[in-house]
């Protein structure tokens, strides 16, 4: 082994495929390059083309949109001359008021709390990384980003709105408020931010290595 090769080896972290446990020796990946597990075919790492600026931009946009989504009316409903307007969080608080407290807590967690925590932690993680700062607490934020994902169900909620729309269509008129569109755009931005966050690349950045 040449001195150069030895140095590269020392600069990489030993990683294993999370699906089949094969130990892989990942050298530095070129931007846009993908590493697949030779045993099971799972993508182990995908080096982003534009580094971490892109997910950060999407996460910042998502944060603004989520705030807007909590300010304006989300849906309105008109029947027999009566009108009712609801906000995003009312879909949870109405359940709470009706006595379904556990269900209310679950709904609030899935559609507001988890997406908000996820967005905030992506920003808290990427701002220092993009500006070249390293803090010991970054690893805790990084862990949160990769663990909370399955519990953020903003996009599932959007389909729920669509279904409600069609269920009500026969008996009344349902109108989409500005908050609905903000929440829709929020979901698109958060999804785009997460899609551009490669696990391997992010953790190498947190450790202060080149991916």
């Amino acid at each position: 082994m040449t001195a150069d090769a030895a140095q590269t080896r020392a600069a990489t972290t030993p990683v294993a495929c999370l699906e089949c446990d094969l130990l892989v020796d990942l050298g530095p990946l070129a931007p846009g390059q993908r590493a697949q597990c030779p045993r099971c075919g799972t993508t182990i790492a995908a080096s982003p083309k534009q580094g971490l600026h892109r997910p950060l931009a999407f996460a910042l946009a998502a944060a603004v949109l989520l705030m807007l989504a909590n300010v304006y009316p989300f849906l309105a409903f008109k029947a027999s001359g009566l009108e009712r307007v609801m906000t995003l969080t009312e879909s949870a608080s109405a359940l709470y008021d009706d006595g379904s407290r556990v269900l209310a807590a679950l709904v609030l967690t899935f559609i507001v709390i988890a997406p908000a925590v996820l967005t905030a932690s992506v920003i808290a993680l990427l701002v220092p990384l993009v500006t070249g700062r390293r803090y010991p607490w970054l690893r805790h934020i990084g862990r949160l980003v990769f663990v909370i994902g399955p519990w953020s169900m903003a996009e599932v909620f959007l389909i729920g709105v669509l279904v409600s729309f069609i269920k009500i269509a026969k008996m009344a008129t349902m109108l989409l408020g500005p908050s609905f569109w903000a929440f829709f755009a929020f979901t698109v931005c958060l999804t785009a931010a997460l899609a551009a966050l490669d696990r391997h690349y992010v953790w190498n950045a947190i450790e202060g290595r080149d991916a």
Binding site: L75, F77, R84, M86, E90, S91, A92, S93, A94, L95, D98, L103, V107, G160, V161, S164, K167, I168, A172, M174
Partner: peptide, 8 residues
């Protein structure tokens, strides 16, 4: 959740 909040 949506119908309970909206249709009241």
């Amino acid at each position: 959740a949506i119908l309970v909040a909206l249709i009241n």
